[in-house]
Amino acid sequence: MIDILLATFNGASYIRSQIFSIISQDYTDWRLIIHDDGSTDKTVDLIKELASYDQRIRLIEDNVTHLGPGANFMHLLNFSDAPYCCFCDQDDVWFDNKLTIMHRAFSTLDHSRPQVLFSGAYLWDSSSNCLPRKNFQKKVFQFEDILFHNGGMQGAASMFNAKMRDTINKKYEYVAMHDQILSLAGILYKGIHFIDTPLFLYRQHANNVTAHIPQNKSDKIKVSLANRSIPVVVKKYYDGIIAFYHLFRDEMTESQRRIFELYICYPNYNSIKRFFSILTHGFSCHDSRIQLIIKLLIRPYFQ
């Protein structure tokens, strides 16, 4: 059994195609668990309509709303008890072999430890006639490469085991995004894995919770220049990292704790000390030290 955890909010324009893509999976032993965050459109009505046709679809109605996307996904962990879990965005479209390929890849892993697997995707602008473009997760295995990420690996691309679900299902001081927590835990427990196969369409539209993804080095530079007012460190993700650190620091090595403590202290440093300390300790952003350096040079540091 695989539990698919779908957090929804005002997704009526997209939710039907996403759920149909799940119903069409060639791996059939799944349960779709949905929690809505207080939608004011027809999202819940559409979910109930589809649930009436497929008993594997379960809508949680517990009157808990206005959590925000990250906390809504984390809330869903409380309703899962399957050996495997997937986070699922309301506006994507899954290929019919997504669960089969990810489940097969999991068969070689040690399930006594927390494990998470991330796939690739195709970026898809459904409002244009452009063909989807491949987007692969950056293979990140250490904290130095993710703390400046302002987020985590793409949650919609993940599958994780029950041990990981139980490990991250805690009471946090603050939740920025669910995939930030999942990515940090994968690195902490040396249980983060990647497959390059694109397994779904990651829809790009004006209401995406996370920013659109640049496709190449040229795009990344253009985006960095265009977004000069966006800080290097966004406060909500900074607060999310602090919350993770407070819960898991006893599980970290001394060197890992040192990396977190440096990152947490950097807003208090002057710009010169901070710049050279970041370079000295090998931090990067999206697997690129150059990209991080550019951001440090042209953007405000913290906001």
Rank of each mutant, 00 (worst) to 15 (best):
P132Q: 02
S127M: 03
A157Y: 04
N129L: 06
K134N: 00
S126C: 08
F141S: 14
I146V: 15
S128T: 13
C130M: 10
I146L: 04
F136L: 15
Q137H: 13
N150H: 08
K134I: 13
M159L: 06
A157N: 09
R133H: 11
S158Y: 00
F141R: 10
G152Y: 04
L147Y: 04
Q154F: 11
K134W: 02
K138D: 11
S128F: 07
Q142G: 11
E144K: 14
G155C: 01
D145E: 15
C130T: 05
K134M: 09
H149E: 14
V140W: 13
A157G: 02
K138P: 06
N135T: 07
D145F: 02
M159D: 00
S128I: 08
A156K: 00
Q154V: 09
L131S: 13
L147D: 06
S128P: 00
Q142S: 15
L131M: 10
G152M: 04
S127C: 01
Q137D: 11
Q154I: 04
C130S: 05
H149S: 13
S126H: 13
Q137F: 11
N129G: 05
N135V: 08
M159R: 01
S127L: 06
G155D: 02
E144W: 01
F148L: 09
C130W: 03
N135A: 12
A156H: 00
I146Y: 03
Q137N: 13
V140L: 15
G151K: 09
S158K: 00
K139I: 14
M159S: 00
K138A: 08
F136Y: 14
Q137R: 12
K138C: 08
Q142A: 10
G151F: 08
S127W: 04
N129P: 03
D145R: 09
K134E: 13
D145S: 13
M159C: 02
D145L: 03
G152H: 14
D145W: 05
G155S: 06
L131D: 15
Q142D: 14
G151R: 11
K138T: 12
K138H: 15
Q137M: 13
A157K: 00
M153G: 11
V140Y: 12
K139F: 08
N150Q: 07
G155V: 03
V140F: 14
K138E: 15
L147P: 01
F141H: 14
F136P: 11
M159I: 02
L131Y: 14
M153Y: 03
S127T: 15
F148E: 04
S158M: 02
A157E: 01
K134P: 02
K134V: 14
M153Q: 14
S126V: 05
A156F: 03
H149D: 05
C130A: 07
A156S: 07
K134Q: 08
P132G: 05
S127I: 01
A156G: 10
S128K: 07
F136C: 15
L147I: 09
V140M: 12
C130Y: 08
S127Q: 04
S128N: 03
V140H: 06
E144L: 04
N150A: 01
L147S: 05
L131K: 15
L131G: 07
G155F: 00
Q142F: 08
